[in-house]
């Protein structure tokens, strides 16, 4: 239930410690036993952490960084122990109790900062426009309008919503197509099959790349990655029929059993 994705550290393997016995803890809330186990574990851990050989840092460069940071430690933690510091802070806290707290300050996540960079460096083709429905200070939710200037979808207007996570770019933006479209790679609910939005997302990619990727879905629809199976089959087997289906859908009308609102 706990951690999310743990990976092995970069350092080399060091000590190998085996706990004997293999006794498994049962969760019956027996505090006395818990207490005993904790005590022994505390001492055990204290012991083995001390005994481990000092891990080799990944590179030479970082060893010097570590030495610098260690010397920091010595310089900074030289007078008061932490607990003395806590004591001082507690006194201050009691004094400050009556004072009114400052206004809540919004702290920007690293994701927002990176997004700010992406957005301020956007370089979009004329056929793509970006809007911020919540104003200039909410960059995490925005909309992109694509008006393809080439291909089957020429003349149509397609709206996409973007939702960006606070851990962006660790996670790809979530993108939905808000315009109902007859398209092999976009389903009728607005899910988009674009590799860089899911399996091929990398933190070095950015919002510009994603918008270009979406744009290319309209100039080069692809029947090999179908989300709308029927549209993909028609594109593969009968491009002429596909073209007229796209036209009919964009003009507002039925393709088979499905109604599409006008988007031209």
């Amino acid at each position: 239930m706990m951690g999310e994705g743990l990976s092995e550290g970069k350092g080399e393997r060091h000590g190998r410690v085996m706990f004997g016995g293999g006794k498994r803890k049962e969760n019956n809330g027996d505090f006395e036993r818990e207490k005993r186990e904790l005590k022994s574990l505390l001492l055990l851990l204290l012991g083995f952490i001390a005994e481990l050989p000092k891990p080799k840092p990944p590179t030479k460069l970082c060893s010097s960084i570590i030495i610098i940071s260690l010397s920091f430690l010595c310089v900074f933690f030289s007078t008061r122990t932490m607990i003395k510091l806590f004591k001082v802070k507690e006194k201050q806290r009691e004094l400050a109790e009556n004072a009114n707290g400052g206004a809540p300050i919004k702290k920007q996540s690293a994701g927002e900062l990176r997004l700010h960079k992406d957005i301020s460096e956007l370089n979009l083709p004329k056929s793509c426009a970006i809007q911020f429905p919540n104003g200039k200070d909410d960059l995490m939710n925005f909309e992109v309008t694509i008006r393809p200037d080439d291909g089957y979808y020429l003349g149509g207007t397609f709206l996409f919503s973007f939702n960006v996570s606070p851990i962006y770019p660790h996670e790809a933006p979530k993108v939905k197509c808000k315009t109902k479209v007859y398209h092999p790679n976009i389903d009728l609910e607005g899910n988009v099959c674009l590799n860089i939005l899911r399996e091929d997302w990398k933190p070095v990619l950015n919002i510009n790349t994603v918008i270009y990727g979406l744009y290319h879905l309209f100039t080069e629809p692809n029947y090999e990655d179908p989300l709308n199976h029927d549209a993909a089959a028609v594109l593969r087997d009968n491009p002429k029929l596909f073209e007229s289906n796209v036209r009919r859908a964009m003009a507002g009308g039925y393709v088979g059993q499905t109604f599409f609102a006008r988007c031209m």
Binding site: E4, G5, L6, S7, G9, S69, F72, L73, F76, A110, I167, H170, E171, A172, N185, D187, N191, V192, C193, N195, R198, E199, W201, D225, P226, L227, H229
Partner: peptide, 26 residues
């Protein structure tokens, strides 16, 4: 300020595996 924060070492967390939507659909 002394040891790395989460953001310094965010690469320690491998990205979640995401299946292509078209694989799921087809």
């Amino acid at each position: 300020g002394i040891t790395p924060c989460f953001e310094c070492t965010i690469w320690l967390f491998p990205p979640q595996v995401k299946f292509p939507l078209c694989t799921l659909a087809e």
